[in-house]
Design a binder for these strands. Structure first.
Length: 927
RNA sequence: GCCUAGGUGGUGGAACUGGUAGACACGCAGGACUUAAAAUCCUGUUCCUGUUAAAGGAGUGCGGGUUCGAUUCCCGCCCUAGGUACCA
């Protein structure tokens, strides 16, 4: 029988599914290993050839780990709540659940074709009530938790209530809103129930707060920052304005420091770690208070350069700062109001675009410099952001370029504060000099100055060392239909959780998926949807990241109805050992998941500080478009003639995308081209060397560019094993690369060669029981060693090459020995599972047992050669080959080399200074 | 601007801790088998000089440095990709 990938692959895929081959063992003393892929959103377009790249890599690793004796968990599921299905529902009225179901079916078929070793009995879908029940349950845990800075972890809200009952706010160190009240235990007890709830909300990890959002009135919804482009909505191009709304938020800022520290304990790619670090944005500095006698308050600013405090010549507030009204003098009021109105209209993007123009207004008010007591003007300007720090800065024009430009523009003083500072052209932030014009820190160095200033400010109670984070709390609500309902109802305007045994709170059916006429979210259309028939439910749903922030736990115990996963399952599987996915989730999913994981740990549900021990980013596979060149006539109109790439410069042409699937190695199939579109039916071609060569370009893979390659088509022609090997062969896993089918023949040839090696001319399996020769063992053990090393360091592309070399060598030796094949196919199995299963059973092994065979042991003895020749250089220049016996020590080798006539000739009588050995071999002789 | 990764033949890429640069594959050229095609097999393929060959020279973005020896380490610069930005 010839290598028939089609029947062979179907057969084994069915066998694996029927026999549950990839379900982890229930009771075992094997060590566990958890390999996870980022689960996909099942879009309507199906999978293209780029999607499975990471899945193939994780599958290779899973199968390898299984062969290495691990109990492997390797599950797959769907992140099935999402915008496209909802958008489709709005247009067609089709329920998103229906579209989602159809798409999932398609995804599953495509995934099955590739022969993955997923345990499908553990599949999860975030949009199913049995799943989102637990997403809602986790929301409840967050609502019922506060962050205790004293224990540095989240605790049940009850511990806070107890504290209030006993001591009031005395001694509470919590992460909370800024406007918390201070009260005694008695005062707390005297609060009404509603006052208590209102106050507790300021501490909860899931809380309701008024926040500024991108509101798109035309779409009736809030948009995320990346859904707003140049001030209009990405979808539809409607205007977007800044609006204050009550929004659910997650107090992720409480975890800023732990999220940062945790990065040092996990094995993630450096760029990704760096992105999270920047996102969290820790900056170490000080907060300083500038008294404003006029209103009897102190303006607090944050600075990373407290040492420059004597260079302060004015204070700038964000236009939104809450005291602007209070501070503004009557003389300045009109100007201030006009400026504030102008900035309010600007979106954040406009503000960024305007970054280069200096603007601002004097409030008329003055603050006292805390150290000099001098008056400093208070200005407002939009280069100060309300959301960062305190929304106010101390301006040091000599040290900060923005302050410098502002001072120049408005004629404010610029104070030189260091003897090395050069401030004629621009601000100079250097820390090298000694301070001048700086009171008691004159003459000090940077480090001394920082300490001295902070000490003085602390004594005066006007400042202290402080750490600031760029990260904000995460908004946790969308005015959409297709998401998890928030398990909350409102009584007297305050949120309360529904009872736990009422979960899941089902997503109600509605007639249309648009916002209501009164501007409520779509859930407002579910008229009689009320808690206990009377209380209004929360109408916004959870954001896309909710369901994906804990899904790895659900795979551990997907059918559990009593808990998100049982204690035993969580204790056994612990955390994900290897996680593979794209870097686009760096500051979204991967950060939120770490956050929820830490909360659940703090609340005692598991013991892992970090959810994903090792992470690999697979590079994006881009499209590679092909072009034909249509010749234009005198008037610049397209003719029916197409010219080959090499000759196109002799004509006036226009490039047209052509379907990559009718192009082979960049040569156009002209017959298929004629059938490609009706108006090409009579196409004529100007060929070079009898062929039509197409142009190429790397672009995003998309239907409109005719460069989408469907894995199903590749599998139909070459088989899943070829696809898997080829995707790995394409280049390093982590690197972005364009898909190019050109080289796939080479991989396909390799598999056929392997097959033919163990089949005779008439296609019968034929294997010899003879003892393998030295050379055969060498070929085998080289590959055993190489593949093991490669897989451990995720260098899958070089393994594929090594397999080709191995089979070439065995072919040359005409080796069809049983002992060689048996071990070779185990090493190949993770990459090409189907063909190896087939050969495994042809060898007479029970079907399906290869997955649990043991990985062949590498024996270095097989790589040792007794006779070999290798090059030796003299003074680094290549000179000669020396034949040598190996089993000698360095001294003996040295002696032989020096007596060798060739060597003597090369040395030409010069004295030997040094002989360089590498791994027991002489590499170089220095004379 | 800042941060991170990278720059090697016609192409994808290999060279793991400094040790024969270009493995392996594609493509291309030539050949064998065949009536022919497909499939398969063999040979060559970094560039330059050299009639073939023998041989020699150059060569891993550019310029320096360390070293017996540098794609690999160090310094300066150029370019590409990704991230990020009035963050005080």
């Amino acid at each position: 029988m010839e290598y028939n990938h089609q029947s062979l692959e179907k057969k084994w895929q069915k066998f694996w599914a029927d026999n549950g081959t990839f379900m982890p063992e229930k009771t075992t003393d094997k060590p566990k290993y958890y390999v996870l892929d980022m689960f996909p959103y099942p879009s309507g377009a199906g999978l293209h050839v780029g999607h499975p790249l990471g899945y193939i890599a994780s599958d290779i690793f899973s199968r390898y780990k299984r062969l290495k004796g691990y109990n492997v968990l390797h599950p797959m599921g769907y992140d099935s709540f999402g915008l496209p299905a909802e958008q489709y529902a709005i247009q067609t009225g089709q329920h998103p659940a229906v579209t989602t179901e159809v798409n999932i079916k398609r995804y599953r078929e495509q995934l099955d074709n590739i022969g993955f070793s997923y345990d499908w009995s553990r599949e999860v879908r975030t949009s199913e009530p049995q799943y989102y029940k637990w997403t809602q349950w986790i929301f409840m845990q967050l609502f019922n938790a506060w962050y205790n800075n004293r224990t540095d972890k989240a605790e049940s809200i009850n511990t806070l209530i107890d504290h209030f009952n006993n001591f009031g706010t005395q001694g509470v160190e919590a992460v909370s809103d800024e406007d918390i009240l201070t009260f005694s235990a008695d005062e707390w007890k005297a609060f009404t129930e509603e006052d208590k709830q209102r106050e507790l909300l300021k501490y909860r990890l899931a809380y309701l707060r008024e926040s500024t959002v991108n509101w798109c009135a035309a779409l009736g919804t809030v948009l995320a920052n990346d859904e707003v482009i140049n001030g209009v909505s990405e979808r539809g191009g409607y205007p977007v304005e800044q609006k204050k709304m009550m929004q659910w938020s997650m107090r992720i800022t409480a975890y800023a420091d732990r999220l940062l520290r945790g990065l040092e304990t996990i094995d993630w790619p450096e760029p990704l770690v760096e992105m999270q670090r920047n996102w969290i944005g820790k900056s170490v500095g000080a907060s300083v208070k500038f008294p404003v006698p006029q209103i009897d308050k102190e303006i607090e600013v944050f600075t990373t350069r407290v040492d420059t405090i004597f260079g302060v010549s004015f204070i700038v507030l964000a236009p939104e700062h809450e005291w602007v009204d209070l501070l503004t003098t009557d003389a300045q009021r009109a100007e201030v109001d006009a400026y504030r109105e102008k900035t309010a209209k600007k979106s954040e993007l406009d503000r960024m675009a305007d970054a280069k123009t200096v603007s601002g207004v004097f409030t008329g008010a003055y603050a006292k410099h805390p150290l000099t007591g001098e008056d400093v003007q208070i200005w407002i300007a939009d280069y100060v952001l309300a959301g960062y720090g305190t929304g106010a800065v101390m301006a040091v024009p000599s040290g900060d370029q923005r302050d410098y430009l502002f001072a120049k523009h408005f004629g404010l003083p610029i104070i030189r504060i260091s003897d090395t500072q050069q401030i004629e052209e621009a601000a100079d932030p250097n820390k090298d000099g000694r301070y001048i014009n700086s009171g008691f820190i004159n003459g000090l160095t940077y480090d001394e100055a920082v300490a001295a200033v902070i000490k003085r400010l602390e004594e005066m109670k006007l400042g202290k060392a402080k750490v600031n984070f760029r990260m904000r709390d995460a908004i946790f609500g969308r005015q959409r239909y297709w998401g998890e309902p928030v398990p909350v109802y409102f009584k007297n305007g305050l949120p309360y959780l529904i009872e736990e045994d009422e979960l899941p709170l089902m997503l109600p059916e509605i007639d249309k998926y648009l916002p209501t006429e009164t501007g409520e979210p779509p859930l407002g259309r579910a008229g009689d949807w009320k808690y206990q028939g009377q209380y209004e439910y929360e109408l916004s749903t959870m954001p896309g990241w909710a369901g994906s922030s804990w899904y790895w736990f659900r795979y551990m115990d997907p059918k559990n109805t009593e808990a998100f996963a049982s204690k035993e399952a969580v204790d056994y599987w612990k955390a994900v050992d290897l996680y593979i996915g794209g870097s686009e989730h760096a500051t979204g999913h991967l950060l939120y998941s770490r956050f929820w994981n830490k909360v659940l740990k703090d609340l005692g549900y598991h013991n892992e500080e970090e959810p994903f021990k090792k992470l690999i980013n697979q590079g994006m596979i881009q499209g590679r478009s092909n072009f034909v060149y249509r010749v234009l006539d005198e008037e610049g109109k397209g003719t029916n003639t197409f010219v080959s790439l090499g000759l196109k410069d002799q004509y006036k042409t226009i490039p047209l995308h052509v379907d990559v699937n009718i192009v082979h190695n960049d040569i156009l199939d002209t017959e298929k081209f004629k059938a490609f579109r009706p108006d090409f039916a009579n196409a004529e071609f100007v060929l070079e060397n009898g062929r039509y060569v197409c142009g190429t370009e790397v672009e995003k893979m998309s239907k409109s560019k005719f460069n989408v390659v469907n894995p199903d088509d590749i599998i139909a022609t070459y088989g899943a094993d070829t696809l898997r090997l080829y995707e790995m062969f394409l280049g390093p896993l982590e690197q972005a690369k364009p898909w190019n089918t050109n080289g796939i023949e080479g991989v396909y040839k390799f598999l056929r060669k392997l097959w033919r090696l163990f089949h005779d001319a008439s296609g019968n399996f034929i294997v010899s029981d003879e003892e393998p020769t030295k050379a055969e063992y060498k070929a085998l053990h080289k590959i055993i060693k190489k593949v093991e090393e490669d897989i451990e360091r995720f260098s899958f592309n070089t393994s594929v090459s090594a397999f080709m070399i191995c089979v070439n060598e065995l072919s040359e030796l005409k080796c069809n020995k049983r002992k060689i094949l048996q071990e070779l196919i185990i090493t190949l199995h993770p990459y090409a599972p189907h063909i190896t299963e087939e050969l495994w059973s042809l060898l007479g092994n029970p079907a399906g047992t290869i997955s649990y065979a043991s990985y062949p042991a590498f024996n270095p003895a097989h790589l040792v050669e007794s006779e070999f020749a290798y090059p030796v250089s003299v003074n680094g220049k290549m000179k000669m080959n020396l034949p040598l016996a190996l089993d000698l020590d360095a001294k003996a080798v040295e002696a032989i080399v020096l007596e060798n006539n060739d060597v003597q000739r090369f040395l030409d009588g010069k004295a030997v200074k040094k002989i360089i050995f590498v791994k027991g071999k002489i590499i170089n002789i220095v004379v």
